[in-house]
Amino acid sequence: MTTEPEQTPPKRVFQPDFLTELFRNPLDPGYADAAARKAKEGDPAGVRKWTASGIATITLVALGFLFVVAYQQTVRDEPARTKARATLVEQVQNRRDETVRLQARADQLGDEVSQLRERELGGQTAARLRDLEAATGLAPVKGSGAKVRLADGPTPINAVTGERNTVARVKDTDLQLATNALWSLGAEAITINGQRLTATSTIRQAGEAILVDFQPVTTPYEVIAIGPDDLAKDFADGYAGHFFRQLAAKYGMSFDATDAHNVTLAAATELKLRVAEPSTPPPAPSASISGLPGDIASQEPHSSSSSEGGR
């Protein structure tokens, strides 16, 4: 009886993965070949060495020449740029001073015109004209009313796009809503950051800026109105106050409505009219109409200043 020898199972060989091979042999085979070739052939000599050295020298000289030319050009142009900038700054300052001087001259001439008008028109007519100017915004007014304050909330920058989140910023429509609500509640005169509103005033958005009659206003926005005693309370309890409280709670915007006492609102800078019609008094009632009060003919129609605000 013969016994067959036991067969040993084949040995399993595991192929190394990429990361294992990378850590085991970190040097690229090309570097090893280059090192072996250099050890065998030695450093380049003769024409090859001089050619490589010449190319490197020429490259360095060319780069140095370009740097020198750029530096000289910058140094030579710097006085011209500085001089041009100084000239522009001087022109801006001169124009600003000229504007201030002309505005002072215009105010002086306006006072002279007012004095001449008072002297020529007389008491009752001049008083009526002053009332009309106050109602239309051409004259400063003083009184009590409400102060509405609006301010932008936090405007974080998106980390991915780099854009600024402008949802929490006060818009031109917000200021329009505030002023229209004040007009509807009986306001007689309104200013936004000192800019007096008239029948032709505009509140517009220009990029990230808000323009009131083409004058830029910035946050915080103070809307001051002269009107009834409960103007601030009525505004806060109305639809506009409810809307601004929602914006403050949702986006972090600032909103406040308080009473304003003895405030003076400046006159509008300029009122541009394109169309005007003469005002004609109403016809006197006929004597044959009976049942009317006797003083009805002497009464003048009442014109509310809020309607002069263009709302």
Rank of each mutant, 00 (worst) to 15 (best):
G137L: 04
F214Q: 05
Y221V: 03
K142F: 01
A232C: 01
P156Q: 02
G238A: 10
G241N: 07
T51Y: 05
A266W: 00
L27S: 03
F214N: 10
A86L: 07
G309Y: 04
A267Y: 06
V170N: 04
A52S: 09
L88K: 10
T179N: 03
N158D: 15
V275S: 04
A70W: 02
D131M: 08
P79F: 03
E4I: 11
S114P: 00
R130K: 13
E208I: 02
T87D: 14
L177K: 05
L27A: 13
D213K: 04
T166A: 06
T173W: 10
P10V: 06
A168L: 05
A36N: 12
D111R: 15
D77P: 00
A257P: 00
G309C: 04
P278M: 09
L109D: 01
F214Y: 04
A146T: 10
P293T: 10
G162C: 04
A199C: 00
F244D: 01
A159W: 02
L63H: 03
E21R: 14
L129A: 11
R119T: 11
S290G: 12
A39M: 13
V89M: 08
F67V: 09
A135R: 10
R85K: 12
T219W: 02
A36C: 09
E112W: 11
D33A: 15
A189F: 03
V263E: 14
G162Y: 02
A36E: 14
L265Q: 06
V217G: 06
N262A: 15
R12Y: 06
S184P: 00
D131K: 11
G238I: 05
A260L: 08
I58M: 13
R81L: 08
G137E: 03
R101G: 07
R37W: 12
V141D: 04
L185K: 10
V61F: 10
W183G: 03
A45Y: 05
A284D: 08
A62P: 01
A268R: 01
D295T: 13
K147N: 13
T125Y: 09
L211I: 02
V160G: 00
P216G: 03
R164W: 00
V170L: 06
R96Q: 14
V89L: 14
G153V: 01
G310C: 03
V61W: 04
A266Q: 11
L265T: 07
S286Q: 13
A287V: 10
T191L: 01
S144A: 13
G137K: 08
P79T: 03
V89Q: 12
G42T: 06
L129S: 02
D152R: 02
N158P: 08
A189T: 05
F67D: 14
